Simulated scan of single mutants.
Amino acid sequence: MNRWAVAALVLGVLALAVWVVAGRNTGAAALPEVPAGGYAEISVSTLGKLLETPKEERGFVLLNVHVPYAGEIPGTDLLLPYNRLPEFADRLPQDKTTPIVLYCRSGAMSRMAAKTLVQMGYTRVYDVPGGMNAWRTSGGNLVFKKR
């Protein structure tokens, strides 16, 4: 094989690798930047795409903060009350750079929880405006587990 054929083969493999990686950019890497000292919002559409990644590869924690329990989005990792997050600090990721995606039923509780997590030192906090209501409106299902 001459060097031009080898170069073409290497370029082809690199192009394929870039295409595969770009197509799988559905985990934590796909989350938007968070402003310093704040949190970011993501849509239910974005959340749906993120949840297509297998749970062990996601790279973020999905946290339902709604009280009382009103169901959950499939794939939820934790259920903690929005108004008692500091009490449950031991259940939250110890690495404060771990992305945490929050939701509640309508968005009000998760917005308050996002502010609390930022005050607790978390730097990659994401809120899903509209919460479970928006999730259902977009065609998503909720699961109800005995708690």
Rank of each mutant, 00 (worst) to 15 (best):
N83F: 15
D95A: 08
M112C: 05
P54A: 10
G59T: 07
P93S: 08
P93V: 02
T97R: 13
E57S: 12
E87I: 04
G75H: 07
L79C: 13
R84P: 02
Y82S: 14
G140Y: 09
R136V: 14
V44I: 09
T46V: 13
V18E: 13
H66T: 02
T46Y: 06
A134E: 11
Y126Q: 04
G37P: 01
S110V: 02
P93Y: 06
Y82M: 09
S110E: 01
V21I: 12
K96L: 01
N64W: 09
T46F: 10
V65G: 03
G130V: 09
V65S: 05
Q119W: 05
G38Y: 09
E56Q: 13
A40L: 07
P68W: 06
L50E: 05
L79K: 13
A22I: 01
R111I: 09
A114L: 04
T116F: 00
V67G: 08
Y122T: 06
L31P: 04
V125L: 01
R111T: 15
V65M: 05
G37C: 10
G140K: 07
R84L: 12
G121R: 02
F60I: 09
A113I: 00
M109F: 11
S138F: 11
M132L: 10
F60Q: 02
W135V: 00
E33K: 14
M132F: 07
Q94E: 15
V21C: 12
A36H: 11
E57F: 13
N25C: 08
A15Y: 10
G107Q: 00
G140D: 03
V128R: 03
G37Y: 07
E57C: 07
R105E: 07
P129K: 07
L80K: 00
Y82Q: 11
E41P: 03
Y103L: 00
T76F: 05
L102Q: 06
P99H: 09
G139A: 04
P86K: 05
V65F: 06
V44T: 12
R136T: 14
L50M: 12
M109P: 02
I100N: 03
A22W: 15
V67W: 03
V20R: 13
W19Y: 15
V34Q: 04
T46E: 14
G75I: 02
T116I: 01
L31D: 06
Q119T: 04
Q94D: 11
Q94V: 12
Y122P: 00
L117N: 01
G27F: 14
T76M: 10
T123E: 07
Y122H: 06
V128T: 08
W19G: 02
S45D: 14
R136A: 14
L117P: 00
L50S: 10
R84C: 05
A17P: 00
K115L: 09
Y126M: 05
L63A: 06
D77M: 05
E87H: 13
P81L: 08
P68L: 10
C104T: 00
S110A: 04
T137K: 15
V21K: 14
T123N: 06
L62P: 02
E87Q: 15
T26P: 01
